[in-house]
Amino acid sequence: MQAFVKTLTGKTITLEVEPSDTIENVKAKIQDKEGIPPDQQRLIFAGKQLEDGRTLSDYNIQKESTLHLVLR
Rank of each mutant, 00 (worst) to 15 (best):
K11V: 09
T55R: 11
E51T: 06
S65F: 13
G53Y: 11
K6G: 03
V26N: 00
F4L: 08
L50P: 01
V5Q: 01
F4D: 03
K63Y: 08
A28G: 10
L43S: 00
L67T: 02
D39H: 13
K33A: 13
D21Y: 07
M1K: 04
N60D: 10
T12V: 14
M1E: 03
Q2E: 08
Q62L: 11
T22I: 04
D52F: 04
T7N: 05
M1F: 15
N60Y: 07
E64T: 08
P19K: 07
P19T: 08
K11D: 07
I13A: 02
Q2N: 10
I13Y: 05
D21E: 09
D39F: 10
I23R: 00
E18N: 13
P38M: 15
V26S: 00
E34K: 05
T7C: 11
V70H: 11
I13D: 01
D39L: 08
D32N: 11
L43Q: 00
I44M: 12
L69Y: 01
Q49M: 14
F4W: 06
H68N: 08
G47F: 05
G47H: 05
P38L: 13
G53K: 12
V5E: 02
E51C: 10
S65M: 09
L43A: 00
K63G: 15
L69E: 01
T66S: 06
I23W: 02
L71I: 13
I61L: 06
T7A: 05
A46H: 14
L43P: 00
V17H: 01
E16I: 14
Q41N: 02
T55D: 03
I13E: 01
Q62G: 14
V26A: 02
T22V: 04
S57T: 08
S57D: 09
S20D: 11
V70T: 09
I30N: 00
Q31K: 10
N60S: 08
Q31M: 13
T66K: 06
K48A: 10
K63E: 12
Q40W: 12
E64Y: 12
G47D: 06
L8N: 12
A46T: 05
T55Y: 06
G35C: 05
G10V: 02
V5L: 05
Q31Y: 15
I30F: 02
G47A: 04
M1H: 05
M1P: 02
L50S: 00
S65W: 05
E24G: 13
K11Q: 09
K11I: 09
N60G: 12
A46K: 15
Q41A: 04
D39C: 12
T14C: 09
D39M: 09
A3F: 14
Y59S: 02
T66M: 09
K29N: 03
I23H: 01
E24D: 07
V5A: 02
L43H: 00
I44R: 06
E34S: 14
Q2D: 06
D21K: 01
I23A: 03
G35M: 05
F45Y: 14
F4C: 07
I13K: 01
K63I: 07
L56P: 00
E18S: 15
I44Y: 15
F4A: 04
R72I: 14
N25K: 14
I30G: 00
Q62S: 11
Q49V: 15
G10C: 05
L67N: 01
D58Y: 15
K33P: 02
L8E: 15
L69W: 01
K33N: 05
E16G: 05
A3M: 15
F4Q: 06
D21L: 05
E34G: 06
P38Y: 11
I13T: 03
E16C: 14
G53P: 06
T66H: 15
K27H: 02
I30Q: 00
E24F: 15
R72A: 14
K11F: 09
L67C: 01
E51R: 09
R42P: 01
L56T: 01
K29V: 04
Q40G: 06
A3W: 05
P19S: 10
H68C: 12
L71F: 08
E34A: 13
A3D: 02
E16S: 12
R72D: 12
P38K: 14
G35N: 07
I36N: 03
L71V: 12
T9H: 13
Q49N: 11
Y59V: 03
P37V: 05
K33L: 13
A28N: 11
L43W: 01
P38I: 15
L50F: 02
D32P: 02
K29R: 07
D52Q: 05
I36C: 04
E18K: 14
Q40N: 10
D58L: 03
I61R: 02
A28D: 07
L15W: 01
I44Q: 06
D52V: 05
G35K: 06
K29T: 03
R42N: 12
K29E: 02
V26E: 00
L50M: 09
Q41Y: 13
T22D: 03
E64C: 10
N25Q: 14
I23S: 02
G35F: 04
D58H: 11
G10H: 04
E18G: 07
T22R: 08
T22S: 08
V70N: 06
Q31C: 11
N25E: 12
E18L: 15
Q40H: 13
S20G: 11
T22A: 04
E18C: 12
L67H: 02
D21H: 05
A28H: 12
T9N: 13
E16L: 14
N60A: 08
K11C: 09
V5N: 01
I61Y: 05
L56G: 00
K33C: 07
P37Y: 06
E16R: 09
E51P: 02
P37L: 07
D32W: 10
Q41W: 05
T7S: 06
K27A: 01
E18F: 14
A3I: 15
R72Y: 11
T14V: 15
G47R: 04
D52Y: 04
Q41K: 01
V70R: 10
P19Q: 07
K48H: 12
A46G: 12
N60H: 09
A46S: 08
K27P: 00
Q40C: 11
Q31D: 05
A28Q: 13
Q41I: 12
E24Y: 15
H68F: 14
A46N: 15
K63C: 07
L50K: 00
D52S: 07
S65H: 08
R72W: 12
A46M: 14
D32H: 11
Y59T: 01
H68A: 06
L8K: 10
H68V: 12
L56Y: 02
D52N: 11
L71A: 08
Q62N: 10
F45G: 02
D32K: 13
F45N: 03
G10T: 02
N60L: 08
I23E: 01
V5G: 01
T55A: 06
Q40S: 09
P19E: 08
T22N: 04
T7P: 04
V17I: 07
K29W: 04
S20W: 14
R42C: 14
M1C: 04
L67P: 03
L67M: 09
I61H: 03
L43T: 00
L69V: 05
G35T: 03
I44E: 10
P37H: 12
S65V: 13
Q2P: 10
T14F: 09
A28F: 12
D39N: 12
Q2C: 09
I30C: 01
G47P: 01
I30W: 00
T66R: 06
A3V: 15
L43N: 00
E64K: 07
A3C: 15
S20A: 09
R42Q: 13
H68K: 07
R42S: 12
K6A: 07
T12Y: 09
G35D: 05
S57P: 02
E16W: 15
I23M: 03
R72Q: 13
P38G: 07
K6W: 06
E51L: 11
S20N: 12
E16Q: 13
V26P: 00
F4G: 02
